[in-house]
């Protein structure tokens, strides 16, 4: 028994492959069978096997449309997606949503509370906080994307190689991952920042490396699960090469939980990046990442709490949206 199995972000990965593989047949429980696909329950009809209604649209496209429709019918999910889309746009074109210069100081307007003119109010130098927030998106979101890129490329590669080839390769790689998991990810990030110096890119790299082990584990678990499924064996039996099996069967079918984790990890990465810049390891002033903005406002909590709290709320909303998207997708997967 390995205790370090669970990656905290993905309780989903603990599923027993045997249980998953069982499917509706062996479980045989009546309610489950009845509640399942209407077509399946039709198997017991008089003709034994009623053929499908030919007028029904079928196939992959219908499947996709059905999933999208289910997702679209969840208002929470739609709001979350729209908010994330908004944040992404601000990261690449902050000017679209504000006319204020994030660096323009106005001593007369210092610590003005939120209003129509200054959506988030102004900071101690009279700079428009909303505008600084949006321009901060650029740095924070880019850092997040770098971190996520590292995690996905390295984690996916490690997980797929480990899970697919098994044996000694798997043993060695997974012991390595175990060791990395033993170092709490924030501390790993701090070590890397110490070594590389401060700034947006070192912080991004540090956070990305911290996420890799969990990502590798989840990917490996999924690949292992799918690898033993009868349809993979059937493909092998049909003469398919290992590469083909990997690319056509294993990867597409392991992708779901991994993608869910990736979304979840995006939120975690944003928090970690904001935390590191909050601690003072991010970009140097006057450029502002989200964490730096919040940190700077701490000194004015008594007189102007919004300077810290509103940007903090913005970060929280972003992460909450990502978590909600991830959760919804996960429910859909099940």
């Amino acid at each position: 028994m390995t205790v370090s199995v669970a990656h905290i972000a993905s309780p989903a990965t603990g599923t027993d492959p045997a249980a998953t593989g069982a499917g509706p047949v062996t479980s045989g429980a009546e309610p489950a069978a009845t509640g399942a696909e209407p077509v399946t329950s039709g198997a017991g009809s008089a003709a034994g096997e009623a053929l499908l209604d030919e007028s029904q649209p079928g196939g992959r496209r219908a499947n996709l449309i059905a999933s999208l429709r289910t997702l679209g019918s969840r208002p929470g999910f739609v709001v979350a997606v729209l908010f994330i889309a908004f944040v992404m746009v601000t990261a690449f074109a902050p000017g679209l949503f504000t006319s204020h210069d994030p660096y323009a100081t106005a001593p007369a307007d210092r610590l003005v509370s939120p209003s129509g003119g200054h959506l988030f109010g102004t900071d101690e130098l009279g700079r428009d906080l909303w505008s600084r927030m949006l321009h901060g998106s650029a740095l924070t979101i880019k850092a997040t994307l770098i971190a996520l890129g590292i995690a996905i490329v390295a984690g996916l590669a490690l997980g797929v190689i480990s899970g697919f080839f098994g044996g000694l390769v798997d043993a060695v790689l997974m012991r390595g991952v175990d060791v990395l998991l033993a170092i709490p990810s924030l501390l790993m990030a701090l070590s890397i920042v110490t070594a590389l110096g401060f700034g947006t890119v070192p912080v991004a790299v540090a956070v990305g490396v911290g996420i890799v082990p969990g990502f590798a584990r989840t990917t490996r678990a999924e690949v292992l699960r799918v690898k033993t499924l009868p349809y993979v064996e059937a493909a092998r039996g049909g003469g398919a090469s290992w590469l083909r099996v990997l690319l056509r069967h294993v990867l597409p079918n392991s992708w779901g939980p991994v993608a869910v984790l990736a979304v979840l990890d995006t939120g975690i990465a944003i928090i970690a990046i904001a935390s590191l810049s909050f601690l003072g390891f991010g970009a140097a002033p006057p450029t502002a990442e989200w964490g730096t903005l919040i940190s700077a406002g701490r000194n004015y909590l008594v007189t102007a709490p919004w300077v810290s709290l509103l940007p903090g709320l913005f970060v929280a909303m972003t992460v909450l949206s990502l978590n909600h998207i991830s959760k919804t997708l996960q429910e859909l997967e099940r």
Binding site: G267, S275, L301, P305, L309, G312, A316, L320, H324
Partner: peptide, 22 residues
């Protein structure tokens, strides 16, 4: 729990200070 895990800790800390201390 989904909410609890979404708020950065520094934000929670600042919020608590603002509410319970100030």
């Amino acid at each position: 729990p989904s909410f609890g895990a979404s708020f950065p800790q520094f934000f929670i800390a600042l919020l608590l200070i603002q509410l319970l201390s100030f």
